[in-house]
Computed example of a mutant assay.
Amino acid sequence: MVREQYVSTTGDDGVPDTIPDYLYKIGIYGWRKRCLYLFVLILLVILVINLALTIWIVRVMWFNPEGMGLLQVHPDGVRLEGESDFLFPLYAEEIDSREDSALLMHSTENVTLNARNENVTGRDVTGRLSVGPKKVQGDVQQLVIKSMITKKMLFQADGKEVVVGTNKLRITGPEGAIFQHSVQTPLLRGEMSKDLRLDAPTRALFMDAPDEVRVKALSGHFSATSKMDVLLRSNEGLLVLDAEMVRLRNLRNGTAGTGGAQGLYEVCVCPNSGKLFLSKAGVTSTCSNSQQC
């Protein structure tokens, strides 16, 4: 503890004065002063470094009053000029390109577009379109393609059916089309100067219609080939063969003179109506003697 000693003196007025032995000086001296100056110097260096880094970041990121470099912030959204790389998912309500350029998205792996519902906790994905290097895959409940001009539905597919809304469906593959199940269509037509073939390699081929079935070959031949039997059957009505010439090849010939006793019959044709009927075979033709025409 510092103790102060006082010496009494007498002044001109006869009043004794006290003079302290030690005088106190106010301030920081010695090593404390040097440490304070060093601390201030370090703070000044840190301040200069931070200011330099801030200026460098502003110059590199191209900050400006409208945004950041090529990224401009507007009241109705954000506008990005040039090419940009996104390392993490991008969430946006709408993405538009400039009027004079296309919107291109490049990726070394794939480009995936996800549509999510309003579930705040899970944000479940309701639709997904993934474009990869080898395939394009879409996961949706219903796929609808409409015409931009007429707004007409062109193609629709869901878990139950596929609907093609165009007036004409053209299949240009050299192998045609393969259907594993039934096909319902009002018209089936081949291309010009090409054949139309309906093949069933291992099963039967059925053509059904509530009213009628028409098969036309306007400039060629119509051929029906089967390994087994070809049946033309009409439950109600006639079976009409309308042609200039009708040929029945490879028919068996009966023995002359046996007649109907052996169960042999002759195929006859009415000259006026073209009706076919059977007549008991004889030594000569018995068609003219029949009353079927």
Rank of each mutant, 00 (worst) to 15 (best):
L23S: 06
K216H: 08
R123Y: 06
A157Q: 13
L113P: 01
G165A: 05
S288K: 07
N289W: 03
L70A: 14
T255Y: 01
T108Y: 00
A243V: 13
S290V: 02
D124V: 09
T284C: 04
E99Y: 10
R249P: 04
W31N: 12
C293V: 10
G67R: 01
V140W: 10
V183H: 03
T112D: 13
R203N: 07
H181G: 15
E244A: 14
K168Y: 15
L90N: 09
H74C: 13
T10P: 01
Q156M: 09
V213I: 14
K168V: 15
V269E: 02
V7T: 14
Y29D: 09
S107F: 00
L38M: 10
L232Q: 12
T185D: 07
N235T: 11
V269Q: 01
N253G: 06
V7M: 13
G259R: 04
R98S: 12
Y6I: 15
T9Y: 07
G159E: 14
L129E: 05
D242Q: 12
V283M: 01
E109C: 04
V125D: 05
T202F: 08
M68K: 11
S97D: 02
D21H: 06
Q184D: 06
D199C: 12
F39W: 00
L231H: 09
G237R: 11
R203T: 07
T255S: 13
V40W: 09
G67N: 03
D85H: 15
S234C: 10
F206Q: 06
P174E: 13
P210V: 01
Y91H: 15
V73F: 15
V213C: 10
N272D: 05
V111D: 11
I42M: 13
S219M: 12
S223G: 00
T126R: 02
I95L: 15
